[in-house]
Amino acid sequence: MRRLKTAVGLALTAVMLFPVYWMVNVSFTRDQDMRKSPPYWFPVHGTLEGYRAVLERQLPYLGVSLVVGLGTVALTLLIAAPAAYSLAKLRPRGGGVLSFVLLIAQMIPGIIMAMGFYAIFLTTGVLNTVPGLIVADSTLAVPFAVLILTAFMSGIPEELLQAARVDGAGVMRTFVSIVLPVSRNSIITVSLFAFLWAWSDFVFASTLDQGGAHQPITLGIYHYIGNNNQEWNAIMATAVVASIPATVLLIVAQRYVAAGVTAGAVKD
């Protein structure tokens, strides 16, 4: 039964990741085979040209993306976790309105946000800097993080918080030593998304960091987008190279979620 599940799981993952495979396939394809009809299912006359182009130029960008991603996670949690705790458990007047505003805030088109930030960043001097990009990317994640964390933190039983209060813990202590540890899984979920959004962001990076000394990997793709021509094998190769370290990070993080849950279940 378990083995069957693994088999089904593998099959589903294969279907889901087929487009990713196709991207890998294209990344190895020679220019003259790109639009071959019917296409090669495997890189028959594979070329490493795309990867050569990428490895020569793209590695520094990966480091910047990593910093931006982690910075975004940190900033997002710093702002969202206390807010979610308050909305879920402290019942502020106007909390409903605020949640609603958070929801609507996400509807502002990214490019309009980027144009607004351009003006703000220019006057505050963070245009073309990594901290500026982190702040901009965090706007993708903060409303989401507050809403999701609120949904999960509402599930924390009152008794647990009351017990803490009886023990003499203040609001802050309760938050730090009870709410945060108990919410570990949802915090990891939120962190994952914050990281992913920052990692794959293109609009903010291209508006706010195009002239920067440190640019994320998504802008590295521009090396292969000319004004009349795009080098697709190199673009795809960049995406492949960019997704490897992040995938490893994801797998590790997901194991951590699973571990947390099983640990709880075992003790139960």
Partner: peptide, 18 residues
């Protein structure tokens, strides 16, 4: 089940791509 955590993580890969 075996590999479930890893496969679940792999489902997120599409999100890593710009």
């Amino acid at each position: 089940f075996r590999l479930s955590a890893t496969l679940r993580a792999l489902f997120l890969v599409p999100w890593l791509l710009p």
